[in-house]
């Protein structure tokens, strides 16, 4: 099935969760904030968030930078 990840269409296996998408991208959940269909997920909910066709994921990266 296809989902939108940061605005781009990506094919993922049926039954994938948000956590499995992060794992496939080798992304540490501690380092991102994930919005699933417009809602920011708690870290503890990533594994239980099952994706459906057409779902939208926004993976937001922490950026502290600015001053230095």
């Amino acid at each position: 099935m296809n989902i939108l990840v940061n605005g781009k269409s990506e094919a993922v296996e049926g039954g994938s969760t948000v956590k499995s998408v992060l794992d496939a991208k080798d992304l540490d959940p501690a380092l991102v904030s994930v919005e699933h269909n417009g809602k920011i997920l708690e870290k503890s909910d990533l594994g239980g968030a099952v994706l459906a066709e057409g779902d939208e994921l926004e993976i937001l990266f922490f950026m502290g930078g600015g001053r230095n």
Binding site: A30, I40, K43, L60, M63, G64
Partner: peptide, 15 residues
């Protein structure tokens, strides 16, 4: 609301 938990120190690179 956007970033509920700070990332662990040392894991996010600085500029």
């Amino acid at each position: 609301c956007l970033y509920p938990e700070a990332p662990p120190p040392g894991l996010v690179p600085s500029c």
